[in-house]
């Protein structure tokens, strides 16, 4: 992230992203931005781009649903958007409340013009995030890296 000059890290607190969130809090050159709802992070990324800064939005799959209408801003305005999504509601999910949104993440994001890159193997995380950042910040796309439950495991209930 820092290699790509990302200086705004926005998130709704989430166990899957805890390490990255802690890094953002400890880095004096990064604004660590706790959101009340995920779509604020979409708007924030657009504003950051207007001011020539780079943002990343960290969220759980359920948060994708909160973002849908604000993704109009990114699609119509051709704003770059990088988001890392920790998935629930798919491989091995035991909580029925997570299923509907988890299953809808990819079709919803793709319907709004966001390219989805899925990661299932730990060694692919770094290269995939790197690829996504290049697609976002060099080519001006909206890209979501989906950190699947094959990668991060299913929460035990």
């Amino acid at each position: 992230m820092r290699a790509h000059d990302v200086t705004q890290v926005a998130y709704v607190p989430d166990a899957g992203h805890a390490h990255l969130i802690d890094l953002s809090i400890d880095d004096p050159d990064v604004h660590s931005i706790a959101l009340t709802t995920e779509e604020e992070g979409v708007a924030l990324a657009a504003g950051a781009h207007l001011g020539d800064a780079r943002a990343v939005l960290l969220m759980q799959s359920s948060g994708v649903g909160n973002c849908i209408n604000f993704l109009s801003l990114m699609k119509n305005g051709q704003f770059p958007l990088l988001t890392l999504v920790s998935m629930r509601g798919e491989f091995g999910e035991g909580n029925p409340w997570q299923m509907a949104m988890g299953q809808a993440v990819r079709p919803v994001l793709e319907a709004m013009g966001v390219i989805c890159l899925e990661v299932t193997e730990p060694e692919d995380v770094g290269p995939t995030v790197e690829a996504a950042a290049t697609m976002v910040f060099n080519a001006g796309n909206a890209v979501a890296v989906l950190l699947t439950q094959r990668l991060i495991g299913a929460k035990a209930f």
Binding site: Q8, H31, A43, G47, H49, N69, F70, S72, L73
Partner: peptide, 25 residues
């Protein structure tokens, strides 16, 4: 000026991203 005609509710978040990006303005 950046105006919107959709994405209702986005102006404040967008302003925050811009303010953090341009601390001297």
């Amino acid at each position: 000026l950046y105006t919107m005609a959709g994405a209702m509710g986005a102006a404040t978040g967008m302003g925050l991203g811009l303010a953090l990006a341009q601390p001297d303005k």
